[in-house]
Design a binder for these strands. Structure first.
Lengths: 149, 149
DNA sequence: CTTGTTTTTTGGAATGATTCCTATTACCAT
DNA sequence: ATGGTAATAGGAATCATTCCAAAAAACAAG
C-alpha cells in the first residue's frame, strides 16, 4: 500500500459521486501534484482487483469508480449523466425492483439491464482439466480475452 | 432503408454470436466489398435507436450487436469472452435467476450486474418544465451528456 | 551509510474503438 | 436530364485507456 494508492483510496472514500479515473486524478493532484495519471489508472485497477474498490461501466465511454463495495446497484440519468446508488433487494422480482428504485431514488426508471459473467461449459471443462493437471504435473493455460476500454 | 442498412440487418439476423462492429463489417464486406466501416457504425447506431437492433456493452472494450430484441439478458464467459443469451424471468428474484441461468446455459455464474437508466429528479423537473414551455412558446434544451466508447 | 535488488512511479508515447468530416455518389421527384 | 436531398466512402481526429523505458523510492544486508 503505497502513499499514492492510499491517497487514491482515501479520496474515493470521501465521495459518493462515482468519479471517473480523470476525476480521481484531479482530486488526488490537489494533495500530490506530481502523481501521474498512469499511477491512478494502475492503482484503481489494482484496488478493484483486490475488491477494495468497485469499477462501474455503464456504457458511457468512461469507467467510474466506487469505494462503497456493499451490495448495491446503480442508476444513471439518461439526461445529465449523473449516477446514483440504489439498494438491491435480492429477493425481489424485476417489477418490484423498478418500484423500489423509483421510490428510493426519485428517478423515473426507463430501462434496466442485467448482465451475468461466468464460465462457459467449455471453459469449465478446461479449467477442471487444468486443475486436475496442476495437481500432478506443472502446467497452465491462456488467460481470458484481452480487454480494453 | 438503404441497401447497406438492409444488408447489415440481414447479416446480423443470421447469427446469434453477438458480433462486434468490426465483425459485422467483415461479414457485410463479403457481399458488398466497398462498404465502409463508418457506414456500419452509423447504421448500427441508427438501427439500435430505432429498436431493430440491440447494442450490448459488457465492459470489454467493444460493443456488440444483437438483432434479437425480445426480452433477454446476456452472459459472458470470463475466460474466453464468448457471449450467450439467457432468458429472463421477470418475476424471479436474483437467487432464482442465478439458478435459472446455470440450468439453461450450463455456465457457472460468477457475478451479475444490474444497471438502471432513467431520469433523475432534477431532469424530470426540467423536462416537465420544458414540455410545458414547448406547448406554448418554441424552445429546446441541451441533450444528454456526450458519450463515446 | 553504501551497495545492490526489487517495486513503484513518472511522463510520454502508443493503442484502438468509435466518431467526425468532406467530397462523392445514389436516389427521387419534377 | 436536372436539381436537390440524403447516404456513403475514405480517411483523419478523438480520447479513454494501456504500455513502456527511465528515474525514483523502498528495502535488505553487509
Amino acid at each position: 500500500m503505497t502513499k499514492q494508492r492510499a491517497l487514491i483510496l482515501e479520496e474515493l472514500r470521501k465521495v459518493r459521486t462515482h468519479p471517473t479515473a480523470a476525476d480521481v486524478y484531479e482530486a488526488v493532484r490537489r494533495c500530490m501534484p506530481r502523481i501521474s495519471l498512469g499511477t491512478v489508472y494502475r492503482n484503481l485497477d489494482l484496488l478493484s482487483r483486490e475488491g477494495l474498490v468497485r469499477r462501474i461501466d455503464l456504457g458511457t465511454g468512461k469507467k467510474r469508480y466506487d469505494a462503497f463495495v456493499e451490495d448495491h446497484s446503480h442508476i444513471r440519468c439518461s439526461s445529465c449523466g449523473r449516477v446514483d446508488d440504489v439498494p438491491l433487494h435480492r429477493a425481489d422480482g424485476l417489477a418490484a425492483m423498478y418500484h423500489g428504485v423509483e421510490r428510493t431514488t426519485g428517478y423515473e426508471v426507463q430501462s434496466c439491464e442485467i448482465d451475468f459473467v461466468g464460465l462457459c461449459p467449455e471453459c469449465r471443462k478446461d479449467s477442471a482439466a487444468a486443475s486436475r493437471e496442476r495437481s500432478s504435473r506443472k502446467n497452465d493455460l491462456a488467460g481470458p480475452e484481452k480487454t480494453r476500454k
